[in-house]
Design a binder for these strands. Structure first.
Lengths: 143, 143
DNA sequence: TATTGTTATACTCTATAACTATA
DNA sequence: TATAGTTATAGAGTATAACAATA
């Protein structure tokens, strides 16, 4: 039962390669985020609010490809943890602007440091120039 | 509400880039697979059986990073569609060897052709050498 | 009429514990 | 005792329809 399985065909497919890479990276990322009690999406949302204070729910959905109903519970949870605050939007009465609390700000800053070190672990498998090439080529695919 | 959202920080993260690339590739892949009524995992499983006749359930799980309980229903469905057959393993009485039926064989061969064309659509955004570099670098990350 | 945020809901994907039969 | 396949089940993640408030 220890025969070699031939996965060469699947490895020719671009989507298979990006998916396998994502799986190992995300697994490590989730483990690193455990001290912060953040999922990958929660991390992305908090980071997006940090770098775009006053951002609306709908803008987060567009940027991260999340459907609005699926963001509601997530925002509720991080608001209950007092990581974010909601304030009426200045010009649009329907919208709500999101910002970080002091606690949310220090949490996401620490989490971003940890994320960088998780990233560095995988990037260390590549040379400096390869690291830039990989990100550049991936952006060419999805942008 | 049309302000530019700054996603530059997230775009520095490797996992963010591989994940976004995977999302657009898989979305196109799923659309292309609709005529065959195959999910991405079903495609991978059938392809793996094609290139490794007699492969066991456990070997598929290891190769594709699937948990055994989650493969049971999938195998049941493609067996009911008469795409695969199960036969007692030659040397291990606990295991079951999986093989394609004639219908399964022609289905996955046609699906692999279509998969190649979906892949080509995204690879066309890169030069020939970039295509090889991208796959090579991704393998360095997850292998 | 269109959009923001929301509720309710369903469907898929993924994860864990425990069983059976074989090794 | 360990492993292959299975059952049952629980939890994420993702999807659509429909509503109130505002544009």
């Amino acid at each position: 039962m220890a025969e070699r399985i031939d996965t060469r065909y699947l490895e020719t497919l671009l989507g298979y390669n990006t998916r396998r890479a994502t799986l190992v990276i995300v697994a490590d990322f989730m483990a690193q985020m455990q001290p912060f009690d953040l999922s990958t999406v929660e991390f992305s949302v908090l980071s997006l609010i940090r770098h775009n204070p006053g951002i609306t729910s709908r803008q987060i959905c567009t940027a991260l490809n999340i459907l609005p109903p699926n963001l509601v519970g997530l925002l509720k949870r991080i608001e209950k943890r007092e990581l974010i605050t909601r304030a009426p939007h200045l010009t649009d009465g329907r919208a709500i602007g999101l910002s970080l609390t002091a606690a949310g700000s220090s949490l996401i800053q620490a989490a971003e440091k940890t994320a960088a070190s998780s990233d560095a672990h995988f990037l260390s498998k590549l040379s400096t120039s390869e690291q830039e090439v990989l990100k550049k080529l991936l952006k060419k695919i999805y942008l």
